[in-house]
Design a protein around this nucleic acid. Structure first.
Length: 480
RNA sequence: GGCGGCUUGGCCAAGGGGUAAGGCAACGGCCUGCAAAGCCGUUAUUCUCCGGUUCGAAUCCGGAAGCCGCCUCCA
């Protein structure tokens, strides 16, 4: 099965054919680094991380560029408010972003260019647009892109400039030829950061950096451009206008846009005060739970963050790890090389991923394999012969390969549950030794058929949120 | 006002012309001293509603209702 991708540009799922055989060039809009990142940023980053991993996995040499917007009105505003230098602010939030994404097992892109390090390229880009008659400078130091010079304006977002011109929300600026013309370069006010340019001291507008940097690293046209749905208009529409007006060739072949994260069924917004930051979520949930949550819906659908949804995902992840631990106890562990995974599970997983990166469907395949594997082990009372052992080993190998794409199930199962115990223990007043002592007493009581005492101990532990499991190999315990 | 999307069991969620994946929850069973875990079974003759196309529709078309996003900074 070949990879299919939903292309915002055409509104259809299309078979993916890269411009250049065996290579993929991908650009994704990264954050404007003026504040702490929220769970919505995490979704975009995790989704494209999965896409990056999958493209690589199916054999493409992927060049993945994700930028940092580090010159912007919001950064300047923050600087004015706090007295901190813009560079200090952006550096701080870039570090924070990296730390949080590392925690979420996000791979670093091939390149992470910053706007401020590409000012020369941006200026040249703007100059060439002016030379071609696609942009114009006005006497106050602004340079605008001329919408009317690009006949296909609106093709990505499905808008037509006539309708929008009629809209009342467009502020009319006298010096623009068309109210929809957007800024390529803007003059610096006193005290604002600036760079020398043919139009005076100033800084780039928002959209131009992505056209300039993608050109620098990926060329005049490339395969995939991604970002959040909200960027379709105006940001991506304007990027297309700039790049195609200048180069005269198709800018991007496939546009991919991820949906939003809602919080308790409401949009994240300042007025609702429900901005949910990654760092806060990381304090409350294991990174893999967060990742699995973010991948539990198809990337284009909205997803709702709530305590309940996180809890459900956490239970499901524990169940998968529980199965992997069962295998671990039988000595069935993944190959050291994280092998290619060629079993039925992998096949089902790969089909789902090839179908527009359908991670929700892919997770369904994982759960089905868990159920099947557990049933097999139930039937033979955890004593597999060679044939069954080989089947289970294949499932384990496939799971490991899947882990390498989804970025979950990366822990040793025993370590996963041990970490959970540690976390639960940190909130407890008892020590593991005390728990073990109680369990030992209960084991003896059960031997003596003193079930009243045994149940009393179990209830006592249950009140501490500890659940006992009497298995063939003895009694184990975990936190609920 | 313009553009786009969504509506599937108690909750979440895949599917998107051939007879409803999966998760969470609940209940019954197996197992267990009793539990827990795991497994099995039950919970949508039906996919917001109304028409139409078709041998056949949750899936396509038309209409209605509700919800949501973008058009202003936004992942």
């Amino acid at each position: 099965m070949s990879l299919k991708i939903y292309n915002t540009l055409t509104g259809r799922k299309e078979i993916f054919v890269p411009i250049q055989k065996d290579t993929v060039k991908m650009y994704v809009c990264g954050p404007t680094v003026y504040d702490t990142s929220h769970i919505g940023h995490a979704r975009s980053v995790v989704v494209f991380d999965m896409i990056f991993r999958w493209l690589t996995r199916i054999g493409y040499a992927v060049t993945y560029v994700r930028n940092f917007t580090d010159v912007d009105d919001k950064i300047i505003k923050k600087s004015n408010e706090t007295g901190e230098a813009c560079a200090a602010i952006t550096e701080k939030y870039i570090d924070e972003f990296h730390n949080e994404m590392d925690a979420l097992h996000v791979l670093r892109p091939t390149m992470e260019p910053k706007a401020t390090e590409h000012i020369d390229h941006i200026i040249r880009f703007v100059e060439k647009l002016i030379d071609k008659g696609k942009a114009y400078a006005v006497d106050d130091g602004n340079v605008y892109f001329s919408i009317d010079a690009f006949e296909k304006y609106g093709k990505l977002s499905g808008r037509n400039p006539e309708d929008m011109r009629a809209g009342s929300r467009i502020a009319v600026e006298e010096k623009k030829k068309n109210p929809l013309d957007f800024t390529l370069w803007k003059p610096a006010k006193p005290g604002e950061p600036f760079w020398e340019s043919p139009w005076g001291k100033g800084r780039p507008g928002w959209h131009i950096e992505c056209s300039a940097m993608s050109h620098e690293y990926l060329g005049e046209g490339f395969d995939i451009h991604g970002g959040g749905k909200d960027l379709i208009f105006p940001h991506h529409e304007n990027e297309i206008a700039q790049s195609e007006a200048l180069f005269g060739t198709q800018f991007v072949k496939y546009w991919i846009h991820n949906g939003f994260v809602d919080i308790n069924n409401e949009k994240m917004s300042k007025s609702l005060g429900n901005f949910t930051m990654i760092k806060d979520v990381l304090e409350r949930y294991a990174p893999e739970v967060i990742r699995m949550f973010l991948l539990s819906n198809h990337y284009r659908s909205p997803i709702d963050f709530s305590d309940q949804s996180m809890h459900e995902v956490g239970m499901g992840l524990d169940r998968i790890y529980g199965f992997l631990e069962r295998l671990e106890n039988l000595g069935i562990t993944p190959d050291a090389d994280n092998g290619p995974g060629g079993g039925p599970l992998w096949q089902a997983f790969a089909d789902a991923m090839d179908d527009d990166f359908n991670s929700a469907k892919a997770l369904g395949a994982v759960f089905e394999a868990v159920k099947k594997g557990n049933k097999t082990l139930d039937d033979i009372k955890d004593q597999p012969g060679d044939a069954v052992r080989a089947d289970l080993a294949q499932i384990r190998t496939d799971m490991a390969a899947i882990a390498g794409i989804l970025g979950i199930l990366l822990e040793k199962p025993s370590a996963w549950f041990a970490a959970k115990k540690d976390k639960g223990m940190a909130q407890m007043t008892v020590t593991p030794e005390q728990v073990e002592a109680l369990i030992a007493e209960r084991v003896q009581a059960r031997k003596d058929k003193n079930f009243a005492r045994a149940d009393e101990i179990r209830d006592q532990l249950q009140e501490m949120n500890i659940i006992l499991e009497d298995g063939a190999a003895g009694t184990t315990w975990r936190f609920a």
